[in-house]
Design a protein around this nucleic acid. Structure first.
Ligand code: FES
Ligand code: FES
Lengths: 155, 155
DNA sequence: CCTAAACAGGATAAAATTATCCTGTTTAGT
DNA sequence: ACTAAACAGGATAATTTTATCCTGTTTAGG
């Protein structure tokens, strides 16, 4: 598993908030947790970390919620999200658990894994939040497994 | 982190045992734990799982230890090792934690991550244990961070 | 046949991660 | 002012992962 559960929830939360923010809407904890199908109190903790990390903005009080300045959305990367939640995340570590991933003292899979790591880092740095948020809007990608409403809900 | 600590220790243990087996030597728990710099009782548990999973063979009693039939070494993959230790390991899961990684209902990073997953699976399936064990023998790769002996141990 | 070295496995403990609870503060609207 | 909806944050609980302990069994060698 590449990311911790907290990071997975965090990424999905931010993407939902980003999508809503593009439409000028704030998102409440309740909406976020329901949308991403995650426990609300845990999502609350994660959103707190994201606020402290300046990834999202929170507004207290009635009609409050979370949002991201639309002009900021394109600046945010998965790296930003993940590091706001998991200070210790490090995609640069050795796949076999050596304390240091090193070119001069490589583990047996270092050379193969190096290319994979590069791709992971690149994915995290170059992932375009606004493009992802727009795909969510278009319905070409999703944040949960099952459609919210059954398809056959006629009558 | 791609693998759990247990898997990391397991991979390193198997590689050490493989290297020793190429030289006709059995490895004791004490040797393995010391070589890979991991807690011996935890390594013991992991080795038990590897024995049950038919990755390594154990011999009880004095002058016992763990070994791998040299002819078998080239048959073992990282996938074998990891699944013997972590039944739930699944490199095919969604990077964002959706219950199912799906082409028809993809998460926002599915398409980028798909290629990475393919590389991970390929690394795990095609990694050549005998080549790695031989590199260990040659000293072109390593299982721990620091040389066992200080370099300046003259006199 | 006795001993010491080695693995096996159940039970338990410690640490980290995930999840929940409760109380407090903020704020729009009345 | 009062109220209800919303986030903040400390404390706690549950679960999973990591690590240890203890007792038992096996076996080569004297
Ligand atoms: S040393 Fe293991 S991945 Fe680089
Ligand atoms: S659906 Fe998320 S990686 Fe495939």
């Amino acid at each position: 598993m590449l990311f911790t559960k907290a990071c997975e929830y965090g990424i999905r939360s931010v993407l939902f908030v980003a999508k809503q923010s593009l439409e000028g809407k704030r998102s409440t904890l309740k909406e976020i947790a329901s949308e991403i199908e995650a426990p609300q109190p845990f999502v609350a903790k994660i959103m707190q970390q994201l606020v402290r990390g300046n990834v999202v903005v929170s507004v207290k009080g009635i009609s409050g919620g979370f949002y991201i300045e639309p002009s900021q959305i394109k600046e945010i990367t998965l790296t930003n999200i993940v590091f706001a939640i998991d200070k210790n995340f490090d995609s640069k570590l050795c796949a076999m658990g050596l304390k240091e991933c090193s070119e001069v003292r490589p583990c047996p899979i270092h050379h193969t894994y190096k290319a994979i790591k590069k791709d992971i880092i690149s994915m995290m740095d170059k992932s375009n939040l606004i493009e992802m948020a727009e795909s969510l809007k278009n319905g070409t990608c999703f944040l949960s497994n099952l459609p919210k409403q059954p398809i056959n809900n006629l009558q």
